[in-house]
Design a protein around this nucleic acid. Structure first.
Lengths: 216, 216
DNA sequence: CAGACTATTCAACAAGCGTTGAATAATCAA
DNA sequence: TTGATTATTCAACGCTTGTTGAATAGTCTG
């Protein structure tokens, strides 16, 4: 019995590449592995996407706009709700993070792989400077200026260092390495995204307040 | 004029491998690149270390013991100084982090590369579970039990999630991607390790207190 | 100095790599 | 049904990879 709506091969290549790049990094994956994972011939990746590096780029571009939009929407929504005095630190961080939790919580493995891939490039000295800026700087700057309003006494550099810590905590959560499971001997599960974010939000918000609330 | 104490070639291979693995990951580096960086023939890596994977392991083993010892010593020192009631959260985190700052601050690039390599495996879904546990679990468990004493009301899972956030913030700092420089347009420098840790310690300590101090 | 052992290089291997041009199949417009 | 366009596979290329065995140089022991 033939499948009515088979996933197009072009899409399956992106899915396969996404999953494998997230697990093994750019150099740890061959086009033949990607093709095999997608059930297509190796030359098809070249036909649709060009060189290996272009395929890598295409994997990012597929979901980038959607992700940034939902995060910006979350920020604007919480700003609208907060009124003139602006949202609190917790509310801003919540808007920054919750769309990612939702993406990780969908049954769709694609989003999990995509976010692990983001974690991979953010932590990579090679890819980080090349790719993170063009993907997220505009978004991040908007969150940072919201944080500045919520923490009017903070120095700029304090805000940036705090954001750096937030970004690191988030990145490890996105990477989803399962190490917290081992360390806690089962008391925490990497797949329990809600628990991860429910802890990350007050943790980082308290950090911002402590470092940024008062001038030295 | 001949150099009196040339660095042995075996050591130079480790140095070169350390630097290249940290920048490009395991699969992003070839033995020929490593050999060229060390100024030796490609077969020499095999002679001294065996397979590529064994060289990778050897890079970790060279500095692991020294690093763990200095961190354990820092913990014991702060415990001795704190007396019977035990050190504070800040003091424990400081003991956990400062030895890394010192290692990054030495003029020696080797330690910087090594710590960036730790960041690479900690964030990698492939290497993380395979390598981090055997390198650091014993050390981490000792810090966690010290944190439990400093936060007697905390639930175990809260401590572990907070540690997860601490580990993430630290990891991004070790990776030293230079992204904070771009984002802050020069107000923060990734090479200003003291500033990084001076912000990270109160940030994460406040997070622990907030999440762990009181039961819900 | 002889000899043994270690360190290092040389040359080559089979396997796998990204990439390509031509051939075939599928889709769609007229 | 034709013809044109797109999608997909096939077969192969030149190159690089990790690894190895034999050859050479260096170092220490007696």
């Amino acid at each position: 019995m033939a499948e009515k709506n088979p996933i197009p091969k072009r899409e399956r290549i992106l899915d396969s590449a996404e999953a494998l790049f997230a697990e093994h990094g750019y150099d740890g994956v061959t086009l033949r592995q990607i093709a095999k994972g997608a059930g297509v011939d190796v030359a098809l990746a070249n036909y649709h996407f060009g060189k290996k590096l272009d395929l890598f780029q295409a994997v990012f571009e597929r979901r980038a706009a959607h992700l940034n939009e939902s995060r910006i929407e979350a920020l604007h929504a919480c700003q609208a709700k907060a009124g003139k005095k602006g949202p609190s630190v917790e509310q801003i961080i919540e808007a920054f993070l919750r769309p990612l939790e939702l993406a990780q919580e969908t049954g769709d493995d694609g989003w999990r792989h995509y976010l692990a891939l983001i974690a991979y490039i953010n932590n990579s000295p090679y890819w980080g400077p090349r790719m993170m800026s063009q993907l997220f700087d505009e978004l991040v700057q908007e969150f940072i200026s919201a944080l500045k309003k919520a923490l009017p006494k903070a120095r700029d550099e304090d805000i940036y260092w705090c954001y750096h810590n937030l970004s690191g905590a988030l990145t490890l959560t996105l990477a989803n390495t399962g190490r917290i499971d081992k360390l806690s001997r089962g008391k925490c599960s990497s797949d329990d995204f809600q628990a991860a974010y429910d802890h990350m939000i007050p943790f980082t918000a308290a950090g911002f307040r402590k470092v940024c609330a008062s001038r030295s």
